[in-house]
Amino acid sequence: MPSIDVVINLTREECLAHYEGWAQKVHTRSLDGRRVVFPASALRQIIGRDGVDGIYRLTYSESGKFESIVVLQQNR
């Protein structure tokens, strides 16, 4: 399964906008500088009381569809 490591830094308020459906997608950067977009619904698995801040591994199918997200390093 292909994967990419990304940095996500969202405040609690920014996460709430994603969680409530105001924002459908999360835009971020990979560790090597590539732009990455994935479904905002993935944040539900990693959101903390203060938001999301750290490095996460996204896995996706061969066709490029998002499959999962895991914490590699959490900063908050």
Rank of each mutant, 00 (worst) to 15 (best):
T11Y: 00
R12I: 07
R76I: 04
V71W: 09
E13Y: 14
H18Y: 10
S30V: 05
Y60K: 08
Y56Q: 08
G64W: 08
I69S: 02
I8D: 01
W22H: 01
W22R: 02
S30P: 05
G48L: 15
E62W: 01
H18F: 04
V7C: 00
V36Y: 06
L31S: 10
E13A: 12
S61K: 08
A23P: 07
A42E: 06
Q73S: 06
N9S: 10
V36C: 02
P39N: 05
M1G: 10
V26N: 04
G48I: 15
I4K: 09
T59S: 13
R29T: 06
F38C: 04
R57T: 11
I69R: 03
E14V: 00
R44Q: 12
S68C: 02
V52S: 14
G33Q: 14
R29D: 05
D32T: 13
S61H: 10
E67G: 00
N9W: 00
R76C: 07
R49K: 15
R49T: 15
V6A: 03
R35F: 11
L16W: 12
M1V: 06
N9Y: 00
R34Q: 12
G21C: 02
R44S: 11
E67P: 00
F66S: 00
T28F: 03
D53R: 14
R29F: 07
D32N: 12
S3A: 11
G64H: 08
G48H: 12
N75Q: 14
A42D: 11
Y19W: 06
P2Q: 03
R57E: 12
V37W: 08
L10R: 09
I55M: 13
S3M: 04
E13I: 13
A23C: 06
I8F: 00
S3E: 03
L43A: 11
S61D: 08
Y60L: 09
Q74R: 15
E20W: 04
Q24H: 09
R57D: 05
D53K: 14
R29Q: 07
I46T: 06
R44H: 12
L43P: 11
D5S: 07
G54D: 12
C15M: 13
G64A: 06
G64S: 05
L31C: 11
